[in-house]
Simulated assay, not measured.
Amino acid sequence: MANGSRQAVWEFFGTELKRRREEAGLTQTELGAKVFVSGGYIGQFEQAIRKPQLDVAQRIDQVLQTDGIFERLCRKLIDDPRYADYFAGVVDLEQLATTICEFEPTVVPGLLQTPGYARALILATHPFAADEFIAERVTARVERSAILKDAARPRYWAIVHEGALRTAVGGATVAAEALDHLAELSRQRRVLLQVFPFEAGAPANNGSLRLMEFNDAPPVAYTETSFSGTLVDDPAVVKRAQGAYDLLRGAALSPEMSLDLIESAAEDHRRCASST
């Protein structure tokens, strides 16, 4: 993970720790005594000056009864080979988010991918990888989508460029199945899905963009290119990203028209598959 992205997630760790501690009615000194560190250390954790060891994070979860949140954040930040270094911390943040807004200009968003589609993308970037490596990455990506099935799932709003729908990732059959999955999620109202059409011209944001909001922590923005990602919590920059997303939303097709286009693109892929 890039240093800026890692630091931003540790800062979220500290903000969440402070909120949970205060909800439990504990001072920094009182919590420190319960998890066998000084109150000064707790203050440094909350300010993201010092990073807690895994066993301390586990004890904090036990004392604050936080269902393993701090342990999971700590583990992801320490190491998770299933994700790119710059993305590992984002995975835990999306599990805490109340709202996720995403724009993808070239592919179906990761949370909405089918196993076949995910496998094709991972193979494209790791053509010499072992089958076990590919399978592990696919499983990790598909497991992330579980947050959209939970009753307390975040509100998820995705804008996908039409170019992503027209690209036969994994071949025509795999692409058609991926778009069928998108259409079904839209019909079930599990996600709010819009398509940014070709005729809309240049999008307000050229790369991948994700905005995440939380109950009692500031919103963050995440941008990604082919080889790096950046997690941003600077309020001014996040506000600019939100403005860009509003412009994307305004230029995209309505959810109803988007669903029609997704279904049409899926049918086009099926026709290509049947003609080969």
Rank of each mutant, 00 (worst) to 15 (best):
N3Y: 04
N3C: 01
N3L: 07
R6Y: 07
Q7I: 04
A8F: 03
A8C: 07
E16W: 04
L17T: 01
K18A: 15
R20N: 09
R21H: 04
R21S: 01
E22S: 02
E22G: 03
L26W: 05
T27H: 06
A33Y: 05
K34D: 01
V35N: 00
G39R: 01
Y41D: 02
Q44L: 15
Q44E: 10
F45S: 01
Q47D: 03
R50A: 02
K51H: 10
D55T: 14
A57T: 14
D61M: 09
V63T: 15
V63M: 08
Q65F: 07
I69M: 14
I69H: 06
I78R: 15
D79L: 09
Y83Q: 08
Y83E: 08
A84V: 07
D85N: 08
A88L: 00
D92Q: 11
D92L: 03
L93A: 08
E94P: 05
E94T: 08
A97D: 03
I100R: 01
C101H: 01
E102R: 02
E102L: 08
E102T: 10
F103R: 11
E104Q: 14
T106A: 13
P109Q: 13
Q113M: 05
T114I: 10
P115W: 08
Y117I: 14
P127L: 14
F128Q: 12
A130K: 14
A130C: 08
D131V: 12
D131H: 09
F133E: 02
I134A: 01
I134P: 00
E136T: 13
V138P: 00
T139C: 03
R144G: 03
S145K: 15
S145L: 09
L148V: 06
K149G: 05
K149R: 04
D150A: 15
A152W: 09
R153P: 00
W157S: 07
V160F: 01
H161D: 11
E162D: 10
R166Y: 04
R166P: 09
V169R: 07
G171Y: 02
G171R: 13
G171V: 02
A175T: 02
E177M: 11
A178P: 06
L179N: 05
H181T: 15
H181I: 05
L182S: 12
E184N: 15
S186W: 00
S186H: 07
L192Y: 07
L193C: 09
Q194M: 06
E199P: 02
A200E: 14
G201S: 05
P203C: 14
P203A: 06
N205G: 09
N206R: 15
G207P: 03
M212H: 06
E213M: 10
A217M: 13
P218D: 04
V220P: 05
E224C: 11
E224F: 03
E224P: 01
F227S: 11
L231I: 12
V232R: 00
D234A: 15
D234C: 11
P235S: 11
P235M: 08
V237D: 13
K239I: 00
K239P: 04
G243D: 12
G250F: 14
G250R: 06
A252I: 00
L253D: 04
S254M: 10
S258N: 02
L259T: 11
L259W: 00
I262F: 00
D268L: 14
R271Y: 05
T276G: 15
